[in-house]
């Protein structure tokens, strides 16, 4: 399990990186490498040139302000997980990152790399969609900003064009009075989710006032649960769980089968996670 031969460069600026990316047929960006390198070890990915962006000045930054958190392309998941300021503005970051891999993976893996990799069972793409994150991209034709909702096209497939590079992602601050819950069913600690949910829930007076619900591990891309978002409005613990669960089932009809779970299981699980998230948010509100 050794990678096939490739060339390597380590640019010091984004411009240099873009030039390098355009210079070869199968060039790839190396940030954390925690998904790319295993794929290369399995010889599943054809790479002729690896462009290592880890020494580009300023790319490993995590900046936060009251309006949101900006994470640079080379910033590791551990950096963000340990960042108290980021957690206070976008609580979903810490909630999501707790489920990502293990310490050793998070120490190298990057937030932007996880978005670019677009694993359908990953937490961070779902968080990006749930929180209306904006992904900043540089390419041969200049810079552009892509809404997370438009960024994920399919499993391991994004709106990034050849020669483009994510430079940073901006997670807007959560709406006041809301909390983000990231919950999932995974077979083992640290595994990708069999099915998962990012729920940003606004609760007040013992009822859910509104929520953004995004499922993952269901299809090729994070799945916005729109019927459930409607059904959860004004939901309270004494309401029947069935209607909420049925709405989730309607939202997730396309969930896929694989060796870890069936489609119906994934749908049921996300329905259960949705009810659980609503209850948890209401309990938190009551406690606060």
């Amino acid at each position: 399990m050794k990678p096939a031969p490739f060339d390597y460069c380590r640019p010091s600026t984004v411009t240099e990186a873009l030039e390098a990316l355009s210079s070869a047929e199968s060039s790839r960006v190396l940030a954390g490498g925690q998904s790319l390198v295993p794929a290369m070890n399995f010889r599943l990915t054809d790479v002729s040139l690896l462009v290592d962006i880890n020494r580009i000045e300023g790319l490993a930054s995590v900046d936060c302000d009251p309006g949101g958190v900006t994470v640079g392309a080379a910033a590791t998941q551990t950096q963000v997980l340990d960042h108290d300021g980021a957690a206070s503005v976008v609580s979903g970051l810490r909630a999501a990152l707790r489920h990502v891999g293990h310490l050793q993976i998070r120490n190298r893996g990057t937030v932007c790399g996880s978005l670019a990799h677009a694993d359908p069972a990953a937490e961070l793409p779902a968080l990006a969609v749930a929180s209306d994150a904006v992904i900043a991209v540089s390419g041969p034709d200049g810079e552009r900003r892509i809404d997370a909702a438009d960024f994920f096209i399919g499993a391991f497939w994004t709106a990034l064009d050849d020669g483009e590079l994510i430079t940073e992602v901006r997670f807007p601050a959560e709406p006041p009075g809301s909390m983000t819950i990231v919950d999932e069913i995974s077979r083992r600690a640290g595994d990708f989710a069999v099915a998962g949910l990012v729920a940003t829930v606004e609760a007040e007076g013992g009822a859910v006032r509104g929520a953004r619900l995004v499922g993952f591990g269901l299809g090729g891309v994070p799945t916005r649960l729109e019927a459930a978002e409607a059904a959860i409005r004004d939901w309270a613990p004494d309401h029947p769980a069935d209607t909420l669960a049925e709405a989730v089932m309607a939202d997730t009809a396309d969930a896929f089968d694989d060796i870890h779970a069936t489609s119906w299981y994934r749908r049921e699980a996300v329905a259960a996670l949705t009810v659980r998230a609503a209850r948890r948010a209401l309990a938190a509100e009551e406690a606060a």
Partner: peptide
């Protein structure tokens, strides 16, 4: 395992534990 799951190859790089099979 050489795909970053088992942790047997864990070493410390600049203070952080990492999978050495997932680093060049």
């Amino acid at each position: 395992c050489e795909h970053g799951y088992c942790g047997a190859c864990t070493v410390i790089v600049d203070g952080d534990a990492v999978r050495s099979c997932l680093m060049l």
